[in-house]
Simulated scan of single mutants.
Amino acid sequence: MKTEQVGDGILETWTVDEVAEAFDKNEIVLVDVRTPQEFMFEHVEGALLMPLAFFKAEKLPGQSDKRIVFHCGSGVRSERVARAALDAGFGRVAHMEGGFGAWKGAKKPYIGTNMATGAPHLVS
């Protein structure tokens, strides 16, 4: 994990493996900031959706029980959202390096769309 001091807060950049391990242990909440269309087509099973276009840091829960880790398609939007959360007063915020593309590249499981039927299915 890489860390960067941003004002009074800390921005953490987690690797796909770090996110997958913490997510499997239920230690984090994974928040997808892609569009609803991107999420519907494919997403990490169990991730929550809060699109960048509708992001409101003040609506996020605290992180006393579980850490929040943001992700997007490539890591650009999730870093933007993480920085916005820091600007809103969060002390420590994380995002996943490389985004969903890196997740798929690392062969982590996700929910995809069967192009023949349009039905969701597990891709592992």
Score class of each variant (00 low, 15 high):
Glu4Ile: 10
Val6Gly: 07
Val6Pro: 06
Gly7Asp: 14
Asp8Pro: 04
Gly9Gln: 11
Thr13Asn: 08
Thr13Trp: 03
Thr13Phe: 01
Trp14Asn: 00
Trp14Ser: 00
Thr15Met: 00
Asp17Thr: 03
Asp17Trp: 11
Glu18Leu: 00
Glu18Ile: 00
Glu21Ala: 12
Glu21Asn: 09
Ala22Met: 08
Asn26Gln: 13
Glu27Arg: 14
Glu27Ser: 09
Glu27Ala: 11
Ile28Asp: 14
Val29Asp: 08
Val29Ile: 10
Leu30Gln: 06
Asp32Tyr: 09
Val33Cys: 08
Val33Asp: 00
Val33Arg: 08
Arg34Cys: 02
Pro36Glu: 03
Glu38Val: 08
Phe39Asp: 00
Phe39Ala: 07
Met40Gln: 13
His43Asp: 05
Val44Asp: 08
Glu45Val: 00
Gly46Arg: 01
Ala47Trp: 00
Ala47Phe: 04
Leu48Val: 09
Leu48Tyr: 06
Leu48Pro: 06
Leu49Thr: 06
Leu49Tyr: 02
Leu49Ala: 12
Met50Asp: 09
Pro51Ile: 04
Pro51Gln: 04
Pro51Phe: 13
Leu52Glu: 14
Leu52His: 13
Ala53Thr: 13
Phe55Asn: 04
Phe55Ala: 07
Phe55Pro: 03
Lys56Ala: 00
Lys56Tyr: 03
Lys56Thr: 06
Lys56Gly: 01
Lys56Asp: 08
Ala57His: 07
Ala57Phe: 07
Ala57Ser: 12
Lys59Leu: 14
Leu60Tyr: 06
Pro61Tyr: 04
Asp65Cys: 12
Arg67Ser: 04
Arg67Val: 01
Ile68Tyr: 02
Val69Asp: 01
Val69Cys: 06
Phe70Ala: 12
His71Tyr: 11
His71Ala: 03
Cys72Met: 03
Cys72Phe: 05
Ser74Glu: 14
Val76Ala: 15
Arg77His: 07
Arg77Val: 05
Arg77Phe: 04
Ser78Ala: 10
Glu79Gln: 15
Glu79Arg: 15
Ala82Gly: 08
Arg83Asn: 05
Ala84Arg: 15
Ala84Asn: 14
Ala85Asp: 03
Ala85Asn: 06
Leu86Thr: 12
Asp87Lys: 15
Asp87Glu: 15
Gly89Asp: 05
Gly89Val: 09
Gly91Ala: 10
Arg92His: 09
Arg92Asp: 01
Ala94Lys: 07
His95Trp: 12
Met96Val: 05
Met96Trp: 02
Met96Lys: 03
Met96Pro: 00
Gly98Pro: 12
Gly98Arg: 10
Gly99Ser: 11
Phe100Val: 14
Gly101Leu: 11
Gly101Tyr: 02
Ala102Cys: 06
Trp103Ser: 09
Lys104Cys: 13
Gly105Leu: 11
Ala106Pro: 02
Ala106Gln: 07
Ala106Trp: 04
Lys107Val: 13
Lys107Gln: 13
Lys107Phe: 07
Lys108Glu: 01
Pro109Met: 06
Thr113Ser: 01
Thr113Cys: 02
Ala116Ile: 15
Ala119Asp: 12
His121Lys: 05
Leu122Lys: 14
Leu122His: 14
Val123Asp: 10
Val123Trp: 10
Ser124Glu: 15
